[in-house]
Computed example of a mutant assay.
Amino acid sequence: MSPVPHSFSPRRFAQALVEQALDDALASGARTPVLAISGVQGSGKSTLAAQVVELARARGLQAAALSIDDTYLTRAQRQRLADRIHPLLATRGPPGTHDLPLALSTLDAAKAGRAFALPRFDKLADERVPEAQWQMQDTPLDLLVFEGWFLGTPAEQDAALQAPLNALEREADGDGIWRRWCNQALANDYPALWQRFDRLWFLQPPGFSVVPHWRWQQEQALQQASPGRTSMSRAQVERFVQFYERISRQALRTLPTLADRVIPLDAQRRPL
């Protein structure tokens, strides 16, 4: 279930940075501001989100965190996409594999001060948690922190999609159907979600090369949190991150100029 256990991150973010994030969101003037935290896999988004919520509650505010990962389509829904459009769409993660009406209705309910349930997704089971087990938020929120690996990222130009980027694209998407479909979803469907953000913070890694290692650490933390359940091997993680590589690289190119605040990180996730 998202978010990733805090034990995954080697350290918490400095209190001053957490205070800046909270104050920045509250200064937006929105009735219930949505602070979006974007960053590649393993960059510490859920850790920072949890710290901001913790600080907000310590100040007497009502706050909650949500991950875009918690709005993945169910396994059956993704399988229908795989059967109809391309087999790679059975794998969660890229644009087009999220339940955007669910994400939009959740953020809209939070911003309007209505009661709502926080969706949750079980990553080890690769399935959405049953709705009866979602946490109800009955009290109007003062802040919602929304985190995700490509929040705010714009679509690529068509010409950039011509050549395969990695082994996954060469071997399983040689004709480009999958990557074009995901890019079209990113262009057409996700901007409405991005428009719900009142502030966008970007945790910027030193480059994409750190992502496989960070994601492997994340997988180990998931397994430690649920011993006895099946998780991915290192080789499976290496392939899994290739599903995210194209749009992660697009985020690295574009978000530094689009985000309200950019936090550069070193290879150990320490803010520079």
Rank of each mutant, 00 (worst) to 15 (best):
M1P: 14
P5A: 08
S7H: 13
S7M: 11
F8V: 10
S9Q: 12
S9V: 06
P10Y: 11
P10I: 13
R12C: 02
F13H: 04
F13Q: 03
A14Q: 15
Q15L: 11
V18Y: 03
V18Q: 00
Q20R: 15
A21V: 11
A27S: 15
A30T: 02
A30F: 11
T32H: 01
P33A: 01
A36F: 03
A36I: 02
S38K: 00
V40N: 09
Q41T: 06
Q41P: 11
Q41Y: 06
G44D: 00
K45M: 02
S46P: 06
A49F: 06
A50C: 05
Q51V: 00
E54C: 00
A56V: 01
R57D: 00
A58W: 11
A58M: 09
R59W: 01
Y72N: 06
Y72W: 08
A76T: 08
L81R: 07
R84K: 13
H86R: 10
H86M: 09
H86K: 07
A90E: 11
R92A: 01
R92F: 09
G93W: 06
P94R: 04
H98E: 03
D99E: 09
D99G: 03
A103M: 12
A103C: 07
L107S: 04
A109G: 08
K111D: 04
P119Y: 05
D122R: 04
D122P: 00
K123C: 02
A132I: 09
A132T: 14
W134R: 05
M136S: 15
M136Q: 15
Q137R: 14
D138T: 14
T139L: 09
T139S: 14
T139K: 11
L144N: 00
F146V: 00
F146Q: 00
G148P: 12
W149H: 06
G152Q: 08
T153C: 15
P154F: 11
P154R: 13
P154D: 11
A155C: 10
D158H: 13
A160M: 13
N166V: 06
N166M: 08
L168D: 00
R170S: 12
E171H: 14
A172E: 14
A172I: 00
D173K: 01
D175Y: 01
W181V: 01
W181Y: 12
C182T: 13
Q184Y: 05
N188Y: 08
L193F: 12
L193R: 09
L193H: 09
W194R: 09
R196D: 04
R196C: 02
F197K: 03
W201F: 12
F202A: 03
P205K: 07
F208I: 03
S209H: 15
V210T: 12
H213A: 15
W214M: 06
W216R: 12
Q217W: 11
Q217M: 13
E219C: 06
Q220W: 08
A225G: 03
A225Y: 05
S226F: 13
T230I: 11
T230L: 13
T230H: 13
T230C: 08
S233T: 15
S233W: 07
S233P: 02
Q236A: 14
Q236W: 05
R239V: 07
F243G: 00
E245D: 02
I247N: 03
Q250Y: 04
A251R: 04
A251T: 05
A251Q: 10
L252K: 06
T254N: 10
L255G: 02
T257W: 04
T257F: 08
L258R: 15
L258Q: 11
L258P: 02
R261N: 10
R261W: 12
A267V: 14
Q268F: 11
R269P: 00
R269Q: 13
